[in-house]
Nucleic acid binder design. Structure first.
Length: 312
DNA sequence: AAAGCGGGGCA
DNA sequence: TGCCCAGCTTT
């Protein structure tokens, strides 16, 4: 037993009622939430939404689903095309893994997205969160879903903290389980709605920077609010990864050049990138890492997106 | 448990 | 400029 474990004082029941009721009229109309969205569409959305805001995902999701409406379509798509459609969503390794997941679904699941969190978890790029989310949102399985929004909402509602801290700890996982609705109460309906409602509240009302507590359906039940909304501690404040000058920036610039230029001379890639600094060691390191990741391909003295045909 | 991995938008 | 955003993989 951990001495630092937060104890749930507020009864979860009224909070479940407040948030799920709120969700029914406040929810955004997102394409992957519609009745006619397939499990594959839900999986694609979750892969794209890993670390990328909804507003930037919507158009890329629509283009992806138009081209590859089923797993078998994405499984056959050239990597170059996958990465081009992915465009600047970021973390392009996610796109490769989504394609690999499609291939696994075809090879091992008859082309249909598996329905349980345990099976989903085995797919490339599918971790604890995504497995639970797809099982819940696509198949109405009452899995405990915990994303960055839900972590923050639970920290405030039940632990009285302004922010949940940078890493997902065992205490937070325990809290999420402790306040989760009874999965067997009504066939899992409440549990699934609770997941999406808590997530939506975190996205629209209980935001990280300036929460709109006056609009919160659970403000009167919120432990953090009742404690006077104490500010986050120094430890809870996340320190951002630097961006300028980072390998991620250089990798991103190389990928952008490959998407636009098709097949590019290796030398042009190393000294012709639109970046503020020219660090040849770093550029070489980043190019090698992209080749190693399978995000780029060497063709003689040229470099291209994997599968892109050379002009020779 | 911590580090690495994109990119855009807003305070 | 700093910070935030429907995480996963590797160590």
């Amino acid at each position: 037993m951990s001495a630092a474990a937060p104890h749930v004082i507020v009864s979860p029941g009224p909070v479940h009622a407040a948030l799920t009721s709120w969700y029914h009229h406040a929810a955004r109309d997102l394409p992957w939430r519609r009745r006619d969205c397939t499990p594959w569409g839900v999986l694609v959305s979750e892969a794209m939404l890993q670390q990328t805001p909804v507003s930037r995902v919507v158009p890329r999701w629509q283009e992806w689903m138009r081209r590859w409406p089923e797993p078998k379509d994405a499984a056959l798509a050239p990597v170059a095309e996958i990465l081009t459609v992915w465009d600047r969503l970021g973390y392009p390794r996610r796109a490769l893994r989504l394609r690999e997941a499609a291939q696994t679904i075809v090879d091992r699941h008859g082309g249909r997205v598996p329905e349980t969190a345990d099976e989903l978890r085995k797919l490339p790029g599918v971790g604890e969160y995504t497995a639970a989310a797809v099982a819940c949102f696509a198949f109405e399985e009452p899995e405990v879903v915990v994303d960055t929004n839900i972590r923050r909402v639970l920290a405030r509602l039940f632990a009285g903290q302004a922010l949940p801290g940078k890493t997902y700890t065992a205490d937070q996982r325990r809290l999420a389980r402790d306040v989760f609705p009874d999965p067997e109460a009504d066939g899992g309906q409440l549990a699934c709605t609770w997941n999406i409602a808590a997530m939506e509240l975190g996205a629209l009302v209980c935001t990280a920077r300036s929460p709109a507590c006056s609009e919160c359906p659970a403000a009167q039940l919120c432990t953090w609010r009742l404690a006077g909304s104490p500010p986050p501690t120094e430890e809870q404040r996340t320190r951002a990864q630097s961006w300028a000058g980072s390998d991620r920036q250089v990798r991103g610039a190389i990928m952008a050049a490959l998407r636009i230029g098709g097949v590019v001379e290796r030398s042009d890639l190393l000294d012709g990138l639109p970046l503020p600094t020219v660090d040849l060691v770093q550029r070489r390191r980043c190019l090698e890492s992209l080749l190693s990741d399978g995000l780029a391909e060497q063709q003689g003295e040229r470099v291209a997106l994997p599968g892109a045909h050379s002009r020779c």
